[in-house]
């Protein structure tokens, strides 16, 4: 099987083609051009250089978030269009799953961290599989948007070594090292960014497991509501509270 992977959740724009046991092409860029300008030309280039006709794709995998809202929508809309036009499944792969997959063999906890702005990170926690274990990555809990203090609070409950990666490290790495000391480990720069090949490979595994979601079904994982909804909900809560007080 051949799967095209798209990664646009962060400032990295990535495109990859993988089959069952090879990466046929992979491009990653974090340059000046927007994902919107970059993504489709890279798809065309990847297919061209790998010598794969687009009709031979078995599925489209896309990094589904959490991440930049706009980046996610560029990736998802592109994946949906390709999936619809080619009549192929569109596999929405959680961005943090794909990121943790970069280091799946780590024998302990893995914590991918993306900068979520507003002094927060997007994070999730995984237990890696040592090469002899033969199992795949296991996620412990959900996808979170929280500040570093709250995250470290959760991690400290485990009292074991944690491997960190992701684009939030330049900003939050020093704080993590200070709190966790020798228990904190950091993936080197070249291995810590989201890769389209990981997205494609995880998508391919889902296809192999018989999953066939259509183009209309693929959904982004925003984790966060939009600002307007957050505010509207807060207003509604305040109104309800006021009404309840009045009726007492």
């Amino acid at each position: 099987m051949i799967v095209l992977g798209l990664e646009t959740a962060t400032n990295v724009c990535g495109v990859a083609l993988v089959d069952d046991d090879r990466v046929l092409a992979e491009f990653s860029t974090a340059g000046r051009l927007t994902h919107s300008q970059r993504l489709m030309p890279l798809v065309e280039q990847a297919l061209g250089e790998a010598g794969i006709d687009r009709g031979r794709l078995d599925g489209i995998a896309v990094s589904a978030g959490p991440g930049s809202f706009t980046g996610l929508r560029i990736g998802l809309a592109t994946a949906k269009g390709l999936g619809y036009a080619l009549d192929r499944p569109v596999l929405a792969v959680p961005t943090l799953d794909a990121l943790a997959f970069n280091v799946w063999a780590w024998p302990g906890l893995i914590c991918p961290l993306l900068d979520a702005r507003k002094d927060q990170v997007y994070a999730a926690l995984y237990r890696g599989s040592p090469p002899t274990g033969g199992r795949s990555l296991r996620r412990l809990g959900g996808y979170w948007a929280m500040d570093l203090g709250a995250l470290l609070e959760r991690l400290s409950a485990f009292n074991e070594a944690v491997l960190f990666l992701g684009d939030a490290l330049p900003r939050y790495g020093p704080g993590i090292a200070e709190r966790l000391g020798a228990k904190a480990h950091f993936v080197p720069v070249s291995g810590r960014f989201p890769r389209a090949a990981a997205v494609a490979e995880l998508g391919l595994r889902r296809l192999a497991a018989g999953r066939r979601p259509g183009a209309a079904e693929a959904r982004p994982i925003y984790v966060r509501q939009s600002e307007a909804e957050v505010k509207a909900r807060a207003r509604a809560r305040a109104r309800r509270a006021a009404t309840n007080d009045g009726s007492r």
């Binding site: 993504l39 065309e44 809202f69 929508r73 560029i74 809309a77 592109t78 269009g81 390709l82 619809y84």
Partner: peptide, 18 residues
């Protein structure tokens, strides 16, 4: 811009796919 990007991204991939 965010709204436009959905349509533009979709149109490009549909055109390429077809």
């Amino acid at each position: 811009v965010g709204a436009l990007l959905v349509g533009v991204s979709l149109a490009k991939s549909l055109a390429f796919g077809w």
